[in-house]
């Protein structure tokens, strides 16, 4: 019997493919939330495997904060072209222009929370009933309690105290009109699993994840990249650093780490030796102990 077992990555892959197929089978208008980060790239790769030789039978949704790394946008457009899938872009700038969202002001201003409005508007206007995301339970404590199939009410809100129990591999995607689901096929993956899988499958990822020279400023224990949106505070100076990013988001809130890891092998080695979490470089999570839960309740993913 010994040959009939799967490695942990094969089992996680099989679980994720099963869940993505359940979404397509149970919902009318599913979509994949694509940020351009490694987790949503892995989810997209899994969706490609799930439906081969057919194309991925749903669009990708990208919420464009207007504060992007140019590398992410290039990567996104190339991937969409290769996959032959539809891309839906929800623009935060448009939400602001239309008066649906109000730009934050002040030194810590970011468009991170404004994404919620644009995301919910995009889900509503395209009548999306299931949005697949790349969130993982090991990322953040509010996400540790998240279901694979996570119900959202007609306001797009999450009620963490009243979640449906989820047993075996039976997923309940029943809902009323106007409600939708967020689905997280890689819930059980850790950051290490993601990197090992990217290495094993040789999945293309944006160059930002590899060590490169970049102008950045050191703030709140992280290297924030210089960009047209960055305002220097008193005493801060721009330095040129050999660095890379562990997560990718809005350019104004995504900090990098000093690193010379310029291959996938070196990144895997670096991640396995590291002693701090990847979201430690994300200023959006540092606002309070429950900032992720608060944003998720409103509709963040």
């Amino acid at each position: 019997m010994h040959k009939y077992y799967l490695t942990h990555l094969q089992e996680l892959e099989s679980e994720a493919i099963y869940i993505i197929r359940e979404v397509v089978a149970q919902f009318d208008r599913p979509a994949i939330l694509f940020s351009g980060g490694k987790d949503s790239i892995v989810v997209t790769h899994l969706a490609k495997k799930a439906f081969w030789p057919a194309k991925i039978p749903m669009p990708l949704i990208h919420i464009d904060t207007g504060h992007n790394f140019p590398e992410t946008m290039e990567f996104r457009d190339k991937l969409v072209e290769n996959l032959g899938v539809q891309l839906i872009v929800g623009s935060v700038q448009e939400s602001i222009d239309k008066g649906r969202a109000v730009e934050e002001s002040g030194i810590n201003a970011s468009r991170n929370e404004l994404q919620i409005v644009t995301l919910l508007d995009s889900i509503e206007s395209h009548k999306i009933d299931a949005a697949i995301g790349g969130a993982r339970r090991d990322e953040e404590k509010a996400r540790a309690k998240e279901r694979f199939f996570s119900h959202r009410d007609e306001f797009g809100q999450w009620d963490p105290k009243n979640q449906r129990p989820e047993l075996w591999n039976i997923f309940n995607g029943r809902k009323r009109m106007g409600e939708h689901f967020r689905v997280f096929p890689i819930s059980n993956w850790t950051e290490m699993d993601i990197w090992n899988y990217i290495l094993q499958e040789n999945i293309a990822i944006p160059s930002l994840y590899f060590a490169h020279q970049r102008d950045a400023v050191y703030r709140d224990n992280t290297w924030l990249p210089a960009s047209e949106f960055l305002q220097l505070r008193e005493g801060e100076t721009i330095e040129n650093k050999l660095m890379r990013f562990r997560t990718l988001g809005d350019i104004t809130i995504t900090g990098g780490i000093e690193s010379d890891a310029d291959t996938l092998e070196k990144i895997v080695a670096e991640v396995s030796a590291t002693r701090s979490t990847e979201r430690g470089n994300r200023s959006d999570d540092k606002r309070s102990d429950t900032s992720m839960e608060d944003r998720k309740k409103q509709g963040y993913f």
Binding site: D138, K141, T190, E293
Partner: peptide, 24 residues
């Protein structure tokens, strides 16, 4: 406190829901 991340859990000091934890 590592995984009792929900506001109500932290307030009441109890685990309400199944918490999934990972190690290798």
């Amino acid at each position: 406190l590592l995984t009792d991340g929900l506001r109500s859990e932290r307030e009441q000091g109890i685990t309400i829901d199944v918490a999934y934890r990972y190690f290798a």
